[in-house]
Write a protein that binds this DNA or RNA. Structure first.
Length: 881
RNA sequence: GCCCGAGUGGCGAAAUUGGUAGACGCAAGGGACUUAAAAUCCCUCGGCCUAAACAGCCGUGCCGGUUCGAGUCCGGCCUCGGGCACCA
């Protein structure tokens, strides 16, 4: 064995060994419990970043650990290969997106292999492969026939100069990112998935995912946004003008609103509509000021945070509606706090019981009418703030005295009798528009025929292949200019027809890849019976940024596939782990134009004070100070990213993996630290040295004679006890997926082993301890640092390969000690420590505690009230104060 | 504004769910080895008081409460992250 640790050499050897022996090939085996461990697949952007390394290390640690527990593990990897960046790169480099994408995949596959992840590469897939997207098209045609997919108009960003549709991220401050032209809103036909039909199931299913983070479930619940409420119709009051377009899609004589607080209906003092509401447009026709106000509303801030702090503004339309019960004439206002996209785009305003309405009414001098009182007590009059709690109705005529539920039902009956409303469930969730006017995506398998309409492409004509040799020029969708692509014939009537040139949202591909991995090679269907063997995914790992869209769409797709009989079960992912971000320190100077110029860490020298605190930093090139900008997410724009490849080249994959696991628990953010990386490397060097130092007798087969530990020197028995105690803690932490303390446990084991008294002629038990301790240590580390442990395990012939070695077991007998140390407290304050025999009776423990000098000092002159004994932990003497 | 999190040494963090606060590591300081450097090894390392202490006091964002005992539970505040589509 080599005296020194050479990571690059042993890592290449281990990786070659795994590949040659197809160690990670997953085979269906009904005799063993299956475990499907999946990390979110990457977009092939060109190179791995630290976020990938963290994500995939966490997944690999879990997969390898489960394998050592005896499970039959599947851990696949693939590529989320369609998307906008490939088109941008194509334009820049004049290379077709397909070529660019496949080149990137080759590079990144090599990087993943150099990190030693235990993937079954025989199941690799890329979503831009026709063998993959063919089945997506197949499912699309089925769902289209079923009505789960339908066509309707959708609003897009239109760049009038480039004559193209822009993604939201391509719109910068209202202008096209390339042309700089003012972006227009345009309505075009698009295909939609009817995800709202599954809203209830998607919401209820969250309650059956106990191993998902609460935060993610809360975000999905808010996104689906189910509320029970009432649709209320307000008839229009007679007016000099009529509104032919008012109340689009419904009756022309009423203004519809949706409310979750029908109990406050008698407190309505005005009605407010969104700026985009048809009624607003109608009223503005002869009202220039209103028209100007509506334009202003449309321009205003778009983010919620901006809107929340923004001043409430409105303007009366001059129109009125009639209250359904009181017959009162109520003014209709346009208000900037009403959203067109939710409910009816109109609200009934109850200033007394809604904070926003209260603020608005106060500003514009609209009346406030209290109709709810608390169950106990009264409100001050006049109201100084909205009372938003549910309570008892008052000032509400025949509804007085009812509570929320009572009022809800009585109001509904009364509204139904007048045909002016009914209860209903409102979701925030909207149907999922999947049409993209882009080239590098999965073609939508529809043919437009003048006679037959939208005809799905028949199975025997699938896949609709995307031409792969095109370089887009940024103006419009190249497919729409490619007659060879769009000219076709109608599958129904055989006449000339036009193929759909839109492609699908890339979220569609990533919504079912987890299922395809089970049978990636099947040409007979989307999935085959192997999907029923492996699904659901037992553990899914990825970034919190996918908490809503990706995870919701994948859950939706699983239900669609279930309803097609393709998979069983209701949910795709049993456990979810959302890993934290990778952060690093930033250094910058503010330039004259006010913009920050960021510097790489290697360009600056940090100055520290005597305690090691960072006090200042200087730029190496000019020696002048730079600002220490704090810890932020790694990004190109802040020059604080660290390239994983450099790290691997310098220290090896094991050091990179060890540091990632040790620096923070998986779900928390992780701060990059060069010194921390060196610390991880130092530990691996010490591990190597510990094995090397004992190699002579280990390789001679020593340490396997099973001595009786009672004969061993007490130091050796103590070391062994510490090792097994630590192993017990490691097992607990592994169950919690708290890998940072697993690493700390491994470090403790090595520290303990180094303390075991050895020497030229070691006492009985030494070789035994080293053999047993190193055997445990290597296995505990194997999931985290697979290469060095693979190498050392083989070096000493511990038996077989460490990937398949059984996870070590705690020897309970090693934990037993003759004596134990207990902490003694007086009134809960620690004041000493006693050593008693392990089996000591309570009376003996109390006596020993009372005899302790510390106790005597603290309890002197006070009266004993009580003695609390926590077995194995402490004794608390309670005395009078 | 609303919904989630989180506040513990110079730093990253730990504390097996109410029982010794700061494990493990990093940084820093001191020492050994070396011609020297790197590497390695040993010692110190929350604060205050003290010549020193295995003597005492304080200490887990702040204020209060429950308890024999609170980083952990409860109430009220403060600060910092993350998410958001003013959701009627």
């Amino acid at each position: 064995m080599d005296e020194h640790y050479h990571p690059n050499k042993i890592e290449q050897e281990a990786q070659r060994y795994w590949e040659e022996h197809r160690v990670f090939k997953a085979r269906e085996d009904s005799a063993r419990e299956k475990y499907y461990c999946l990390s979110m697949f990457p977009y092939p952007s060109g190179r791995l970043h630290m976020g990938h390394v963290r994500n995939y290390t966490i997944g690999d640690v879990i997969a390898r650990y489960q394998r050592m527990l005896g499970k039959n593990v599947l851990q696949p990897m693939g590529w989320d290969a369609f998307g906008l960046p490939a088109e941008n790169a194509a334009m820049q480099n004049k290379v077709p997106p397909a070529r660019w994408t496949w080149d990137n995949i080759a590079t990144m596959r090599g990087q993943l292999k150099s990190l030693g992840f235990g993937y079954d590469w025989e199941r690799e897939l890329a979503t831009c492969d026709p063998g993959y997207y063919r089945w997506e098209q197949w499912l699309f045609t089925r769902l289209f026939k079923k009505g789960v997919i339908y066509k309707k108009g959708g609003v897009v960003n239109w760049d009038p100069v480039d004559q193209t549709v822009l993604a939201n991220e391509q719109v910068i401050e209202g202008r096209g990112w390339r042309s700089g032209a003012l972006v227009e809103k345009r309505e075009i036909p698009m295909y939609y998935f009817r995800i709202t039909a599954y809203a209830d199931e998607l919401l209820a299913g969250l309650d059956h995912l106990p191993h998902w983070p609460e935060q993610v479930k809360a975000m999905q619940r808010n996104w689906i946004g189910k509320s029970r409420g009432m649709e209320v119709h307000f008839p229009y009051a007679p007016s000099p003008r009529s509104f032919p377009g008012a109340g689009e899609g419904g009756s022309k004589e009423v203004l519809k609103v949706f409310t979750t607080r029908p109990d406050t209906l008698m407190g309505v003092t005005y009605v407010a509509v969104a700026a985009e509401h048809p009624l607003a447009a109608q009223a503005a026709a002869n009202h220039p000021q209103l028209r100007a106000f509506i334009e202003e509303c449309k321009k205003g801030g778009v983010t919620e945070a901006e809107l929340a702090t923004q001043e409430k503004k409105g303007m009366a339309t001059g129109e009125f509606v009639i209250h359904p019960f009181s017959g009162e004439k109520l003014p209709v206002w346009v208000a900037n706090y009403v959203l067109m996209a939710y409910g009816e785009g109109a609200v009934m305003a109850v200033p007394a019981h809604d904070e926003r309405d209260f603020e608005f009414a106060a500003k514009y001098g609209l009346p406030v009418k209290q109709v709810i009182r608390p169950t106990d007590g009264e409100l001050s009059s006049p109201l100084t703030a909205a009372y938003t709690e549910p309570g008892i109705l008052c000032n509400s005529a025949e509804f007085d005295g009812l509570d929320f539920e009572g009022a809800f039902h009585k109001m509904e009956d009364a509204l139904k009798a007048k045909k002016l409303g009914a209860s209903r469930i409102q979701f925030r969730l909207r149907d999922w528009g999947v049409s993209r006017q882009r080239y590098w995506g999965c073609p939508i398998p529809i043919i437009h025929c003048a006679a037959c309409g939208d005809v799905p492409v028949p199975d025997d004509q699938l896949p609709v292949r995307l031409p792969e040799d095109i370089v887009p020029d940024g103006s419009g969708n190249p497919l729409a200019k490619l007659s060879g692509f769009y000219e076709t014939t109608c599958p129904q009537c055989g006449k000339p027809a036009r193929r759909e040139t839109d492609t699908m949202d890339t979220f569609v591909e990533s919504s079912w890849y987890y299922a395809r991995y089970c049978s990636p090679d099947t040409t007979g269907g989307m999935v085959d019976e192997r999907a029923r063997h492996w699904l659901p995914v037992d553990q899914y790992i990825g970034g919190i940024e996918h908490a809503i869209l990706h995870l919701l769409y994948a859950r939706f797709f699983h239900k669609l596939m279930r309803d097609e009989g393709l998979v069983t079960g209701d949910e795709p992912f049993t456990r979810l782990l959302t890993q934290g971000m990778v952060l690093a320190e930033t250094f910058y100077r503010v330039r004259e134009n006010g913009k920050k110029e960021y510097f790489f860490p290697h360009e600056v020298t940090v100055e520290r004070d005597a305690k090691g605190r960072t006090v200042a930093a200087r730029l190496n090139s000019d020696g002048r100070p730079v600002t220490v900008g704090g810890i932020e997410t790694m990004s190109k724009s802040k020059n604080n990213g660290v390239d994983p490849q450099e790290l691997i080249n310098k220290y090896g994959a094991d050091t990179a993996r060890l540091f990632m696991m040790f620096a923070a628990p998986p779900e928390q953010s992780l701060e990059w630290s060069d010194a921390g990386v060196q610390g991880a490397y130092r530990f691996l060097k010490r591990l190597w040295a510990a094995v090397f130092d004992n190699s002579s007798f280990l390789s001679a087969g020593a340490g396997r004679e099973n001595i009786d530990w009672k004969d061993a020197v007490s130091e050796h028995a103590a070391v062994r006890r510490e090792i097994h105690q630590t192993l017990s803690q490691i097992n607990y932490d592994m169950g919690k997926r708290q890998f940072n303390t697993v690493v700390s446990g491994a470090m403790k084991i090595l520290n303990a082993l180094e303390r075991a008294p050895g020497g030229k002629t070691p006492a009985p038990g030494y070789s035994q301890i080293i053999h047993e301790g190193l055997g445990i240590l290597l296995r505990v580390l194997a999931p985290i640092t697979p290469h060095i442990t693979h190498c050392l395990w083989r070096e000493f012939n511990f038996g077989g390969d460490i990937v398949d070695a059984p996870w070590p077991e705690v020897d309970e007998s090693a934990l037993i000690s003759d004596t134990m140390d207990l902490v003694v407290q007086v009134n809960g304050k620690r004041c000493g420590q006693i050593r008693v025999a392990s089996g000591a009776a309570r009376a003996a423990v109390e006596a020993a505690a009372l005899a302790d000098p510390g106790v005597k000092r603290h309890a002197h002159g006070k009266q004993l009230k009580q003695v609390i004994v926590v077995p194995g932990k402490l004794v608390n003497i309670v005395v009078t104060e």
